[in-house]
Design a protein around this nucleic acid. Sequence first.
DNA 1: CCATAACGGAACTGTACGGTCTAGTTTGAT
DNA 2: ATCAAACTAGACCGTACAGTTCCGTTATGG
Lengths: 226, 226
Amino acid sequence: MVADVDAATPHTATGGGAPAETLGRSERKHRAILEAAQGMFLAGGYLGTNMDELAAASRVSKQTVYKHFGSKEALFVELVTSMTDAAGDRVHVDLADPTEADEVPSFLEAYADRQLDIVMTPTLLQLRRLVIGEVTRFPELAEALYEHGPKRAITTLAAMFERFDELGLLRVDDPTAAATEFNWLVMGEPVNRAMLLGDAAIPTAAERAAQVRGAVRVFLAAYGAR
Amino acid sequence: MVADVDAATPHTATGGGAPAETLGRSERKHRAILEAAQGMFLAGGYLGTNMDELAAASRVSKQTVYKHFGSKEALFVELVTSMTDAAGDRVHVDLADPTEADEVPSFLEAYADRQLDIVMTPTLLQLRRLVIGEVTRFPELAEALYEHGPKRAITTLAAMFERFDELGLLRVDDPTAAATEFNWLVMGEPVNRAMLLGDAAIPTAAERAAQVRGAVRVFLAAYGAR
DNA sequence: CCATAACGGAACTGTACGGTCTAGTTTGAT
DNA sequence: ATCAAACTAGACCGTACAGTTCCGTTATGG
């Protein structure tokens, strides 16, 4: 037994700013709880999750759970909020704008494909289902998910389309309307299918590509420069 | 006190085939239970609804509830199924096809506006939220909602677009793809906003009209005959 | 190396809830 | 008028579950 590097012997010094493996006990428990909470809340919903099992799954005493999070509600809110934030960040990425009009179709296809690929993740879809099912109980969480999800995507797209219009790559009068249309042209069917039909309805890479080609084709028929 | 016509004195003869006011006691209770169940399940979700309160709200004994429906699960399934069926039927309606190409835009706008108006009903939206939140527990219900909702709408649209193509009113290679795109171009944003933002996000008639005009414009740019 | 804060485990409280049971009452068709 | 079916009220059972308490144990950082 030589390599115990991973989870033991934390020494005294923390690596500086590195958020590496060396974490205090408390921090580790905190994360273990959140991790178990993610699995359980996503699988069972808010009311369907019980704190005894959650503590057991976290390999932590119930006492510790309550020391860290205060209540079931607070734990739920913190979990969903952190997942929402993380998901929102994962979507955003910088791509160089195209320079020629004939690069626009493939650019939009790549962009949409990426977007779709990220959104159609089992965990994210389940988060969306969970939050939708709890809109009445936790409206703030649903609103946050809307802001970090669709709204952010549309805002980003709108800015992009406005630039493309100025570059003469597209003809877009109302960038927000165009962005909204593009967004749901791409995501409407896959997302809504998956909401109701479960993860079995998640498109394969090939299906995604076909979906995206169709969407971009329609979009460009309305907003293409030529 | 003269007019007690409404809910009393059921006499012996039932009006014939008329499903009027004169119903057996059992039937009345059955409906009262379903009605209360609708309110309570939509408001509280499956786990959040309790059978004592449900019986009280139905003005019926708990025993009667169990005589009629057997279990909480069975009641839930029957309720959601009946609501799903009813909703699906409400959407379908026959409109005369347009004959000239220049009638197509306003025809599509009217069609979409109607569709959107029906779907954006608080009760229906809440049913959708409820079912989405329970996909794991009741996948059959979610599947049924998908079939009676989006799938049926798209199938109907596809048949319509195929006729329009043959009439030379549109140019549609893949009617199902076109129908899907049209459907989510129209409904994507409103439905998904409402899922997360609640009934406050239900568009007004004017917003609906604007939404629909944009959607039809984009759609016709890609599929218009000219 | 030791003081202290964090943790474990398990019992405990109070309540809530799905479903059943009992025993008496109402209803409606004949 | 009669009688069976349907209904009522509420007690009751078993279980589940959020949150607390108690006290002994362990890890951590100075």
